[in-house]
Design a binder for these strands. Structure first.
Lengths: 332, 332
DNA sequence: TTGTATGCGTTATCAG
DNA sequence: CTGATAACGCATACAA
């Protein structure tokens, strides 16, 4: 591995000059620039990024923390961020938080220790205050899918309440009056927001909320299956079920079919997130679009703007969900 | 940010002593150890991983290169690797190759430049020779889903041919004689291997291969839809279609249904990979299990063993696919 | 067991 | 525009 020493020797210039062309500073004569470039070429010189990082305190790496590395939702997000970052010549170092406070904390500290220039996080367990404090540190960051009032500008979030509202309102517009709800884990803000939206739509239509028709899931498919099963077992009449995410909707569809019912005739179903597999389902799942890609992209733009001082970047923190109508909902 | 200088000052010992406890070397008296620990505690000392990396030439980071960060297959792999690595106190820095030679190469070089202790790669475009050469470098690596004879020990691969064989053999055992095939991109080794397996099963049953009943896809869902459509449009009679992966199978199922046919009565379908959403489909998709998690885990074990010298680790390079029977195949 | 001195490969600060 | 020289924070032979 050639170093800048050898380059400088071969080029017959000083270390500093080599360093200058490496970081294409202005104020370097074309002549020495060429000499240096040639020498680098000849030696197959590759700058040592670790040494660079130590000396300059910049790594050109962005740390990314997500709950899990698998799953359609996180996958789309990761992919989008990596693509955007790479376009800008930056790189991603990613780690998983597993929705566990300790683990999330370790992940964040690791990324910071790693000298990341900035962080992009999607975090479940850590409380808001953690981030408020974190902002006092020197590493800039953004937070996805979470609204933390004190540091609003760093947050990129969806109007989950509106999403929940749109979903059941759609049912109501199709004549449904008896609407069940399979919620996400109510310890999470997005789950409660979505549920509140559901309630608002109901209220607006003067339909009382029937507690027996709401079950709490955990966003995973099995809880959708179980939730639907217990809903059916109540014996209470209902014609539609709104699910707080697509995974649980897929699970619910499964038990509907297992019980010998058809969709959307016997039961109408709607999901939330609009992950890729909603189109693979049968019937294709109507759902609420979560523009995670746009949000992921925007959060990297924020970093390009604030950390790397790129110009002409407008950032938007607040996103709106949209109804996606497909085949899983019937008129009544 | 406190440094070991300040720690050593406060503890009243030398730099080296601090360094020693940091790397828990033997030969450090309990007394000085305690002094140092206390000092670290008091100063909230956090070792600078970049400086460490520069001085020791070790980063405790493993570079991971996959084709895409999204998608069920890569997601499962990434997740497994990250989990295993983290258990061992190592960290992942991941990047995407986008199945493009230039991009893959850049990714690999980036990871190496980043001083990764080792690499785990799933690469499509780069030729075998690249890896043979790469082995001459100092950064150890493993390659997933690829058999490169010259460097077999670094490879973790599936018997794709057997998988393809099992799939159509299963059809044949169910009485199917007219079997279509939607292959992956035949420029990729795994796709041709799977296709060869298909041919072997046919041959073994004395069923001639009908070229008109094989179409080439690209492993994405749309090509499954299109492939099935063109298969149907041939007007040739067939009762089963083997797909080279689950995505394409999902696509094929879509057009079967769009054309008003039912599964598995009119058409039987089998996939390949056994990604998570195969169970969400209707009918649930029979498929070939690709033990990607086991393989991902094994490849990190290899690294733990060879790079970090952990003991008692047995590695296995060669994996067998298995038939997963669900609901998408009928008797005839 | 502990301390000293030097190196790791760059960047950055100043002079010139 | 160019060149010394001092950081950057830690690891590590070597000596004590």
């Amino acid at each position: 591995m050639a170093t800048i020493y050898e380059v400088s020797a071969l080029a017959g210039v000083s270390l500093s000059s080599v360093s200058r062309v490496l970081n294409d500073h202005q104020h370097v004569s074309e002549k020495t620039k060429k000499k240096v470039m040639d020498a680098m070429q000849e030696l197959g010189f590759r700058p040592n990024s670790v040494a660079r990082s130590l000396a300059s305190n910049r790594s050109n790496c962005i740390g990314i923390l997500v709950s899990e590395l698998h799953g359609p939702f996180y996958g789309a997000m990761l992919s989008e961020i990596e693509t955007e970052l790479r376009k800008a010549g930056k790189h991603s170092i990613v780690t998983a938080g597993h929705s566990n406070e300790q683990s999330e904390k370790e992940g964040i500290e690791f990324l910071i220790d790693r000298n990341c220039d900035a962080l992009i996080m999607l975090v479940d367990a850590l409380p808001n205050e953690y981030f408020v404090k974190l902002k006092k540190n020197k590493t800039p960051f953004t937070v996805l899918n979470r609204h933390i009032p004190e540091i609003e500008d760093n947050c990129f979030y969806l109007d989950n309440e509106l999403g929940g509202y749109l979903a059941t309102k759609h049912f109501i517009e199709h004549g449904h009056k008896h609407i069940a709800y399979i919620s996400g884990p109510l310890s999470k803000q997005d789950a409660t927001d979505r549920f509140h939206g559901h309630q608002r739509a109901l209220k607006e239509a003067n339909i009382p909320l029937n507690d027996a028709l709401v079950v709490e899931g955990d966003y995973l498919i099995q809880s959708g299956r179980d939730g639907m099963a217990s809903l059916l077992d109540t014996g209470i009449n209902f014609t539609a079920v709104a699910c707080a995410n697509d995974e649980m909707a897929a699970g619910a569809m499964k038990t509907v079919r297992d019980r010998g019912f058809t969709m959307p005739d016997d039961y109408s179903i709607i999901g939330f997130d609009n992950v890729f597999f909603t189109e693979y389902l049968y019937p294709q799942l109507s759902t609420i679009n979560f523009p995670i890609k746009d949000m992921a992209k925007m959060s990297t733009q924020w970093i390009l703007k604030h950390v790397y001082k790129q110009k002409n970047i407008d950032v938007e923190n607040f996103f709106k969900p949209e109804l996606i109508t497909r085949e899983s909902i019937s008129h009544i």
